[in-house]
Deep mutational scan, measured.
Amino acid sequence: TTLHFDLDGKKLQYTGVSEEIARLVEELKRRGVDLKEIVRILEELLK
């Protein structure tokens, strides 16, 4: 799965993300978590 974000005018793309992580990101968005925080979490998970 590939995730795309537009953060402060920067286009971020994460490829090869598992379905689980993609679902987690969608859930965080639904809960109103700040996009910067979501990206920070995502980068930690993908290390």
Rank of each mutant, 00 (worst) to 15 (best):
R30K: 09
I41Q: 13
R23A: 14
I41S: 06
D8T: 01
E19W: 15
L42E: 00
I41Y: 08
D8H: 04
R40F: 15
V25K: 00
R40K: 12
D34E: 13
F5H: 00
L24Y: 15
G32Q: 12
S18V: 05
Q13Y: 11
K36Q: 12
V17E: 01
L35W: 03
L35Q: 08
R30T: 09
E43V: 06
R31C: 05
V17P: 01
Q13P: 01
E19Q: 13
R23I: 12
I38F: 01
L12R: 04
T1R: 10
R40T: 11
E26F: 15
G32T: 04
E26N: 14
E20D: 13
V39M: 05
I21F: 07
L45F: 06
K47R: 13
E43G: 05
D34L: 11
K10H: 11
E37C: 06
T15R: 07
K10M: 14
L7G: 01
E27Q: 12
K47F: 14
A22W: 11
T15S: 11
Q13W: 11
L45P: 02
K36I: 11
Q13N: 08
V39Q: 03
L12E: 03
D34W: 09
K29D: 07
V33R: 07
L3Y: 03
T2P: 02
T1M: 15
L7K: 01
D6G: 01
L45T: 11
E27H: 13
L12F: 10
L7S: 03
K47Q: 12
L7T: 02
V39D: 00
V25S: 03
K29F: 15
K36N: 12
G32W: 05
K29M: 14
L7R: 00
G32C: 07
Y14H: 00
E43S: 06
L24N: 13
E37Y: 09
K36E: 09
L42P: 00
L45N: 08
D34A: 13
V39L: 10
L24H: 15
T1Y: 15
E44F: 15
L42C: 03
V39E: 00
T1P: 06
R30F: 14
K29E: 08
E44L: 12
E37K: 08
D6E: 13
L3I: 12
D8G: 06
T1N: 11
V17T: 02
L24F: 11
R30Q: 15
L42K: 00
L12S: 04
T15Q: 11
R30I: 10
